[in-house]
Design a binder for these strands. Structure first.
Lengths: 200, 200
DNA sequence: GTCTATAACCGGATAGAC
DNA sequence: GTCTATCCGGTTATAGAC
């Protein structure tokens, strides 16, 4: 592992946990087992290092969303793919949602730029809904509300992990992990039933 | 309005927007129209001032949750009351969810302490579910998942406001506000349908 | 109680030896 | 490339006049 990778790994860990202002270059250096000066040698400034970490994380997420829309033949497919991808991503990058959400309140412009750059095919998604509603296989629902409902139920449990774990599971780490594992098999039927898909 | 109240109002505004580390005592002083020294005269330190704001916000939220459980005769009641209260709270304190979530990652202990102190009656809620499942009026669902689903769909749209507004509504503030207004009439039927309540 | 001025500290950034 | 030592700006906190 090169020093640069070492630094990036350390920065990811610290930034993600404490955000931009909450993090200290010293802490990142300690975590990487090197000294502060070297951080500046590799990445001119704290800001630059942070941006690198940030963009890197966000760019892992978006292609999944895109793919789940493009692969889908109907809204039912979409619900399945989308939730599956998102939960998969969360498993690999559990820090990402909180990180993005935190930084978006500091400065939305960067994030919005990245997302817009991706150009998500919402029109295709809308036509999937229209088609299924017309066919009577689902109840009418507004695209925006459906999207927000799904994303909420997938992301919120990780964002609010400390509260959920403490309040619902008596701070038992294993119970919380089990809960997360169950989400896929709970959320998908929940959504499908909610939009009126016949389940068996 | 006393100076102390002036400071608290200013601190609320600044802390809530920028978090503990992101906020500057100078900015709070300016916002309150006084000088830095006075902040320390009233509240010994930044940390103390922050804690005051924090606890105050959280304590407004919890009684609502409690009430919605106690008032309910069945799970259907609960879904209605709970969502209604939460959305009401959000209208008054749109900053609170993000604030709480942000701070919980800095130091969960304080928050958990406050929540535990409240002693939420989850057992009563569980028995409401059991009763309705036994009566065949809803499909079986695990309490924890139901709670998380509901809270997610209510809180996430406000927490993620900057993304949602930008990505789904082309940064149109009014469209986003309308969307929030619609949430109540969307989320309640969504949940009820999802748990198998007959809707007409 | 409220102010101005300043102390004390901290953290990002740089210089320069190796 | 990596280190130690240091600078410098900014922020919290305090002293002391009014």
């Amino acid at each position: 592992m090169t020093t640069e990778e070492l630094i990036l790994a350390a920065a990811r860990k610290v930034f993600v946990q404490k955000g931009m202002e909450g993090s200290r270059m010293q802490e990142i250096a300690d975590e990487a087992g090197i000294n502060k000066a070297l951080l500046h040698y590799y990445f001119r400034s704290k800001e630059k290092l942070f941006e690198q970490i940030f963009a890197e994380g966000l760019k892992q997420l978006l292609p999944k969303v895109q793919l789940s829309i493009e692969k889908s033949e109907g809204i039912c497919d979409f619900v399945n793919f989308f939730i599956e991808y998102y939960l998969e991503m969360i498993k690999e990058l559990p820090y990402l949602p909180h990180f993005v959400l935190h930084e978006i309140h500091r400065d939305p412009s960067k994030i919005v730029e990245i997302i817009k750059g991706q150009g998500l095919p919402f029109t295709r998604l809308q036509s999937l809904i229209d088609k299924d509603v017309a066919a009577g296989s689902i109840k009418p629902i507004q695209l925006e509300h459906l999207m927000v409902n799904i994303v909420s139920m997938v992301l919120f449990p990780v964002i609010a992990k400390p509260i959920i774990q403490a309040v619902l599971f008596g701070n038992n780490e294993i119970k919380y992990a089990t809960f997360l594992e169950e989400r896929k098999s709970v959320v998908i039927p929940f959504v499908l039933q909610a939009i009126g898909v016949k389940t068996n």
